[in-house]
């Protein structure tokens, strides 16, 4: 794991400045700023309804904030569309698994390679020549990911038939297939048993280790957050209430109050 000093020196990959987002009367995010540095695991925590998922949705272009700005790789990104975020190198998983249910594990992860595949209609009709070669090249990469996540046995299973824990793993695989620079994980361990959680933790750390991917992670389990993350940002009722290394955040009075539900 990198030390805090290393990260503090590192380049900022993404920064969020004074972002506010509301749905009608509901203020989901209010003037939140933070940054994510290259190579770190950045946790976003907070009670239910704090605006964590909304924040990820802002980062990958599903929602456009009413105020504030997002800088990614040093470039301002106003009104970014989801596929622009994708081609810019942002991948994510969803709180409620959003896999392609009717497709096999293999096809789901292959779909993650869509942006990297560009052989046109003509060759694809023939499934020959360039189309065949491209398919094989990407299949090879996808098989590496399948090996990495240890899901060889379910390669040809439609994902709708898989248990929840495995679905989460396939979804991680699909995001990894995009070879993202920034990987957003929305509660990757929610609803898992202890063993599955441990596996997932290991995968997340390995991803960072092997691919050097920067990771932003939403998680409820404080133990997991403390183990995995380099820095933590805490949201509550759409506002940022703390930001820093896990040990400091854990001891913060406002954070403890928010988690214990003290009126404020």
């Amino acid at each position: 794991m990198q030390s805090y000093a290393d990260i503090a020196k590192g380049d900022v990959l993404l920064s969020v400045k004074d972002v506010s987002l509301s749905f009608g009367g509901v203020k989901a995010i209010q003037g939140v700023s933070f940054d994510i540095r290259k190579g770190e695991v950045r946790a976003i925590i907070g009670p239910n309804g704090a605006g964590k998922t909304s924040m990820l949705n802002v980062i990958n272009g599903f929602y456009h904030p009413q105020a504030g700005e997002i800088m990614f790789k040093g470039i301002r990104r106003p009104k970014m569309k989801p596929y622009e975020a994708a081609s810019g190198g942002i991948a994510r998983t969803f709180q409620n698994v959003a896999l392609f249910k009717g497709m096999t594990t293999l096809d789901n992860i292959m779909a993650g390679r869509s942006l990297k595949m560009n052989v046109g209609l003509f060759w694809q009709m023939l499934r020959f020549g360039p189309a065949e070669r491209e398919e094989v090249i990407h299949r090879r990469r996808v098989e590496e990911i399948i090996d990495f996540l240890e899901i060889q046995a379910i390669r040809k299973t439609p994902v709708g038939k898989l248990p929840y824990g495995l679905q989460k793993r396939v979804e991680l695989g699909r995001a990894l297939a995009m070879e993202p620079e920034l990987l957003l994980l929305d509660e990757p361990m929610a609803g898992m048993n202890l063993e599955e959680k441990e596996d997932m933790c290991r995968f997340i750390l390995d991803v960072r280790e092997q691919f050097g991917t920067t990771i932003a992670l939403i998680e409820h389990d404080m133990g997991v957050v403390m183990d995995l993350s380099d820095r933590v940002v805490v949201l509550d009722y759409g506002r940022k209430i703390a930001d820093g290394v896990p040990d400091v955040v854990k001891a913060d009075k406002t954070v403890i109050d928010a988690y214990l539900g003290v009126a404020h």
Binding site: N60, F62, K81, P82, Y83, A85, A86, S87, A91, R92, F94, A98, L99, F100, K101, G102, M103, A111, G112, S114, L115, R174, M178
Partner: peptide, 11 residues
């Protein structure tokens, strides 16, 4: 199957 996720794959 999931148009939201499809967009995130760059589709």
């Amino acid at each position: 199957d999931m148009d939201i996720a499809a967009q995130l794959m760059g589709i």
